[in-house]
Design a protein around this nucleic acid. Sequence first.
DNA 1: ATAGCAATTTAGCCTTGACTAACTTTAAAA
DNA 2: TTTTAAAGTTAGTCAAGGCTAAATTGCTAT
Lengths: 141, 141
Amino acid sequence: MGDDTSLNPRHNKAEVFARLRDAHAREVTEDYVEMIGDLIAEEGEARSVALAERFGVTAATVNNTIKRLERDGYVTSRPYRSIFLTEKGETLAKKCRERHRIVYNFLVSIGVDPAVAEFDAEGIEHHVSEETLRVFDSRLK
Amino acid sequence: MGDDTSLNPRHNKAEVFARLRDAHAREVTEDYVEMIGDLIAEEGEARSVALAERFGVTAATVNNTIKRLERDGYVTSRPYRSIFLTEKGETLAKKCRERHRIVYNFLVSIGVDPAVAEFDAEGIEHHVSEETLRVFDSRLK
DNA sequence: ATAGCAATTTAGCCTTGACTAACTTTAAAA
DNA sequence: TTTTAAAGTTAGTCAAGGCTAAATTGCTAT
Ligand SMILES: [Mn+2]
Ligand SMILES: [Mn+2]
Ligand SMILES: [Mn+2]
Ligand SMILES: [Mn+2]
């Protein structure tokens, strides 16, 4: 009962923002593994040049990011060759793709224009908790 | 008809991500002006120490951010004194507070636990377009 | 009036994620 | 088989947004 967390009206706003910063730290990783998975599915392989074109960034930026993803165990790559997802990367990609799909479908289902939903879902997906995602999904049926 | 934008299955994903990066560039600013407004309303003034506590960051970080906000015309401040919103800052704060309120209320209205909604709304608010916000709001009545 | 504490600022560091320019490698065309 | 264009890499730069440690200022209690 001496617990300040839920009773104090000056509630722990700091926790909310810490979680927000956490989500931001994961966003690029999530979008990359999802996109790499998409490319492998659609084109048979994920090349830097395709990632650069789809994200609208330079090849140098893609290169930096891929190195970080490799360091963190999400992808493997060899110089001048295409990029592969590790088990860990594959798992994350699958989760993100499903989450993305649910958020997008939910927005469309409540009446958001598909083109607008495409924009908004790309950002919203990273800030939707498991619980909120379940609520979105349950509204889809 | 030669318009690639809406017909081409290799649609302009790049636009979506460009907008996402734009939204990210504005997030911290939006949360700060909103919080500064809250503090002025609740406590009569916005001090660095209160911002640091609420955001869960150090005083040095707050200082840096306030300087950026000042440079960009959202706040005014004098050394060792409290922080004030400019007209521009006030306008943005008001818009963000209202948007935040709508997103939060919408999440709660569809069955998300209020505590969870508080977390998720803090991130989602920055990625909700005017149009999606109107849809959320219209569902609230 | 001043000592000491709390608040603020400054300096210096780090990572992420972007860029340009220049270089290297690969692969396709000639 | 050689040339050349596309793809990928490297090097160097920058801003945002974090941090710690140390210096400074302002306020409060003695
Ligand atoms: Mn996505
Ligand atoms: Mn995304
Ligand atoms: Mn907010
Ligand atoms: Mn926010």
